[in-house]
């Protein structure tokens, strides 16, 4: 009886260990898997050619990723430029000014924003943002745009990224000791001086980490961007131009993947690039966040 209990404990422990190790290794398995699958195209073309040439003609065997990379950068750039200031201002307000009751009320609403599926964001973008750009913003600047553009993608992505940056920033501000604010107030500093010189300074690494997390989310987001960014494989020259980000490229071409030689390899290489860039951002910001957690 006793022996059976202990045996069960040991076996279960081993099984759990296996599952844990497996989960810990998934990231590496993914990177490795995608790497092997993108070998065929890397064997034929040097990576620099693929990354820095613009011709995308799979039927002729030309796979130039440049327009997709610049498309991703443009859309992500616009998204981050909108998202960071708005999210930080909101996070500071909620953490330092808003009364507790209001804060507890608003936090779940902002988290709700994170729960809305990206395809619903896409639908909303098509219904609201795209016409807004086409009918008002582009004519205002005296140009024409279909509305499906870098700007549309950037706006929709920014809204998707808000809850991430706000959520992480709130945790960071929360970790700044209350007594530190008190020390500053006691010297006669105003609330805003205290925020500017003490809270933000103490929270800076964490705020950067939060922003980078938001950025990497925007970088890899697929469906919403696919639906509103226009998907024209050309380097955008203004925010009103259409763009064709990498994730949209992968998602859009899944049907044809198998029939054209090297096509699937090229798309999985795109996925690998996406994964590596996102991993890079995530690892940096997680290291910052772990350090902060450890120091408090």
């Amino acid at each position: 009886m006793q022996r059976k209990r202990f045996l069960k404990d040991i076996i279960a422990g081993r099984l759990m260990l296996v599952l844990t190790v497996f989960s810990g290794l998934i990231v590496f398995l993914m990177a490795l898997g995608l790497y092997f699958r993108s070998q065929p195209i890397l064997a034929v073309k040097p990576l620099s050619d693929l990354l820095f040439s613009s011709g995308w003609h799979p039927l002729r065997g030309e796979f130039g990723f440049l327009p997709f990379i610049t498309g991703t950068l443009w859309v992500t750039g616009v998204a981050v430029a909108i998202a960071i200031p708005f999210s930080l201002l909101t996070a500071i307000y909620l953490s330092e000014y808003a009364p507790r009751g209001l804060r507890e009320w608003l936090k779940p609403l902002i988290d709700l924003l994170a729960g809305i599926p990206s395809v619903v964001y896409g639908v909303w973008g098509v219904l609201v943002i795209v016409p807004l750009i086409k009918d008002y913003i582009a004519p205002f600047y005296g140009t024409f745009s279909t509305g499906y553009s870098v700007l549309a993608g950037g706006i929709v992505l920014a809204i998707m990224v808000f809850p991430i940056i706000i959520h992480v920033s709130l945790e960071i501000f929360n970790a700044v000791p209350y007594e530190m604010r008190e020390a500053s107030w006691a010297l006669g500093a105003t609330q805003w001086q205290t925020i500017k010189h003490v809270v933000l300074r103490k929270a800076l690494p964490g705020v950067i980490a939060a922003s980078v997390l938001g950025l990497s989310r925007a970088f890899g987001e697929t469906m919403a961007v696919l639906m509103v960014a226009g998907n024209v494989a050309k380097n955008p020259t203004s925010v009103l131009d259409p763009a064709y980000p990498l994730p949209a490229l992968i998602a859009n071409n899944y049907g044809e993947m198998l029939s054209i030689p090297l096509y699937d390899s090229a798309l999985l290489l795109a996925a690998l690039i996406l994964l590596l860039v996102v991993l890079f951002f995530n690892i940096i910001s997680r290291i910052i966040l772990v350090r902060i957690e450890g120091s408090v």
């Binding site: 020390a183 500053s184 107030w185 010297l187 006669g188 010189h197």
Partner: peptide
């Protein structure tokens, strides 16, 4: 203006997240 008239020492010291110099200069600067 009230707070400027009083210096506070709390239970545990909480230096501001800056250098020794800036900690003392902080109140002067604000």
């Amino acid at each position: 203006h009230i707070r400027k008239k009083m210096g506070l020492l709390s239970q545990r010291p909480y230096p501001l997240p800056m250098s020794i110099y800036d900690n003392v200069a902080y109140g002067l600067r604000i």
